[in-house]
């Protein structure tokens, strides 16, 4: 277990609001976890608590056997954790390529670089000198994914991967997902579309009002059970 991610009973706040009440999870290297739950269940806060944008008030986060609770975002990226944030949040005064370069600027060694990314998303090579926010929603999501991959992470946290994107674009991006996670990389996937998330993952965790309501492998639970856990009934 010491080579993966272990979240142990963390309590985190979103402003004054207590968003997580003792949430735990474990993630083995190379596996994909679908994190599901209704709006406000604490999914984003959990991701932020892992990558260091939110500092848990209690509990422990460890990564590859090392305690990373309370490390800043600027430190976790060097340990191989990357976030694809909700709403993409590209740097608007940077070009596509500058966004990607910035993603890789910590210089962590690994397979990902500009050439390989342009291979994965050829359209980005074409538009690399354009301001990042001038691209379409789907292309912007590719930049956001690319920016995270450029740091050569071992764990990528995808927050609302398909939010606001056209169905055809979502299909495209999911088609590329195995190429990304196939490199022995772990991922946590937050997704509105529960079915799609469960199909792409080998385990799942359902949050309701800041607590784990159900977790396990998707095939071990009926859709009804998952649905009940989702709505917290």
């Amino acid at each position: 277990m010491s080579d993966g991610l272990v979240v142990d009973a963390i309590e985190s706040y979103y402003g004054d609001f207590k968003a997580l009440h003792g949430v735990s999870l474990t993630l083995k290297p190379g596996s994909v976890l679908a994190l599901i739950g209704a709006n406000g269940a604490g999914k984003s806060t959990l991701l932020k608590s892992i990558c260091g944008l939110v500092s848990p008030k209690a509990g422990r986060v460890s990564w590859r056997g090392r305690d990373i609770t309370g490390l800043r975002g600027a430190q976790t990226v060097g340990l191989g954790i990357a976030l694809v944030p909700e709403g993409r949040r590209l740097f608007k005064s940077l070009s596509v390529e500058e966004n990607l370069i910035l993603g890789g600027q910590i210089g962590r060694p690994g397979p990902w670089g500009l050439a390989r990314l342009y291979d994965l998303f050829p359209i980005l090579a074409e538009k690399r000198h354009q301001p990042a926010t001038s691209l379409s929603g789907g292309q912007q999501q590719m930049v956001a994914i690319g920016r995270a991959l450029m740091s050569n992470p071992d764990l990528v946290l995808f927050d609302e991967l398909s939010l606001g994107l056209a169905p055809i674009v979502i299909k495209d991006i999911y088609a590329q997902l195995p190429k990304i996670t196939g490199q022995g990389m772990s991922a946590i996937l937050v997704e509105q579309d529960v079915t799609r998330a469960l199909n792409a993952a080998d385990q799942f965790l359902c949050l309701a009002e800041g607590r784990v309501s159900l977790s396990g492998a998707p095939r071990d639970h009926s859709r009804d059970a998952i649905s009940a856990a989702y709505f917290g009934t």
Binding site: G52, G73, A74, V77, L83, F91, S93, L94, E98, S151
Partner: peptide
């Protein structure tokens, strides 16, 4: 320059810039 890029990125979105290793 890289410094200028860091300035612009932090100005745009300081939280996400942290995740690029920019304290």
């Amino acid at each position: 320059t890289a410094l200028g890029r860091a300035f612009r990125a932090t100005s745009d979105d300081a939280e996400i810039a942290e995740l690029m290793g920019l304290d």
